[in-house]
Simulated assay, not measured.
Amino acid sequence: MLLGGGQAGSEYFAGYITEEALSVDNLFVFLVIMSSFRLPREDQQKMLLFGIVFSLARLVGIVWEKWRDGAPVGVGRRALGTCAV
């Protein structure tokens, strides 16, 4: 990445900005959902922690299932064994 030149640096920066924007968007969505359910402030952190743990467990389950079946594990076109789109 250090020697990738201006193009690689621009792509990295654009990806970074996109991820930051999406994370801020997620915080807004969490606030809207919690306020619509009138979740007490002291329980909001517990629910966020539960959501994070549940999401990680679900992701591990999906990867485990693919690995056990012998399917390639990866993301998008860069996954090993997938055809290019």
Results as ranks from 00 to 15, higher is better:
Leu59Pro: 00
Gly6Asn: 08
Glu19Arg: 07
Lys46Tyr: 05
Gly81Glu: 07
Ser10Leu: 13
Ala14Asn: 07
Gly61Met: 00
Gly4Pro: 01
Gln7Pro: 02
Gly6Phe: 09
Arg38Phe: 06
Lys46Gln: 12
Asp25Gln: 14
Val63Trp: 02
Ile17Gln: 08
Asp25Val: 03
Tyr12Lys: 08
Met1Glu: 08
Met34Cys: 04
Gly5Ile: 06
Asp69Ala: 14
Ser10His: 08
Leu80Glu: 13
Val75Ile: 15
Gly5Trp: 03
Gly4Ala: 12
Val63Ser: 05
Trp67Val: 03
Leu48Arg: 14
Glu65Ala: 14
Gly15Lys: 00
Leu39Gly: 02
Tyr16Ser: 06
Gly4Ile: 01
Gly74Trp: 05
Phe50Met: 12
Leu49Glu: 15
Phe50Ala: 13
Tyr12Phe: 14
Ser10Trp: 07
Pro72Cys: 01
Val85Ile: 10
Arg41Ser: 10
Gln44Phe: 02
Gly51Lys: 08
Arg68Asp: 05
Leu22Lys: 10
Ala84Gln: 13
Ile33His: 09
Arg78Tyr: 12
Val85Pro: 13
Arg78Leu: 12
Glu11Leu: 14
Phe28Thr: 12
Gly5Ala: 04
Val73Glu: 02
Trp67Gly: 04
Leu31Asn: 15
Ser23Ala: 14
Glu65Trp: 11
Leu2Trp: 01
Asp43Gly: 00
Ser35Lys: 13
Ala57Tyr: 00
Val29His: 10
Ile17Gly: 00
Val75Ser: 07
Leu49Arg: 15
Val32Tyr: 08
Leu49Trp: 11
Gln45Met: 11
Ile33Asp: 06
Val73Trp: 03
Gln45His: 10
Met47Pro: 01
Gly76Pro: 01
Gly70Asp: 00
Phe50Asn: 11
Val85Glu: 10
Leu59Trp: 09
Leu39Val: 15
Glu65Lys: 11
Val75Lys: 07
Val24Phe: 11
Phe30Glu: 15
Arg41His: 11
Phe13His: 07
Arg77Lys: 11
Glu42Asp: 15
Gly15Tyr: 02
Arg78Pro: 00
Gly15Ser: 07
Glu20Ile: 07
Ser10Gln: 14
Ala84Ile: 10
Lys46Pro: 00
Leu3His: 08
Gln45Glu: 14
Gly81Lys: 03
Leu3Val: 09
Ser36Glu: 10
Met47Ser: 02
Tyr16Met: 05
Gln7His: 12
Glu11Gln: 11
Leu59His: 04
Thr82Arg: 13
Met47Tyr: 12
Glu20Lys: 10
Ser55Leu: 11
Thr18Met: 09
Ile33Trp: 03
Glu19His: 09
Gly74Gln: 01
Lys46Glu: 08
Leu2Asp: 08
Met34Gly: 04
Leu49Lys: 13
Arg58His: 02
Gly76Cys: 07
Leu56Phe: 07
Phe28Asp: 10
Ala21Val: 05
Arg78Glu: 13
Leu49Val: 12
Leu49Phe: 09
Phe13Asp: 05
Ala57Val: 07
Val60Ala: 10
Lys66Asn: 14
Gly5Lys: 05
Leu49His: 11
Tyr16His: 05
Gly5Tyr: 04
Gly15Cys: 02
Phe37Tyr: 10
Trp64Gln: 09
Val60Arg: 03
Val60Leu: 09
Met1Thr: 05
Tyr12Trp: 08
Ile52Phe: 12
Phe28Glu: 13
Met47Thr: 03
Val32Ile: 15
Asp43Met: 10
Gly4Gln: 02
Gly9Tyr: 00
Val75Pro: 01
Ser35Thr: 15
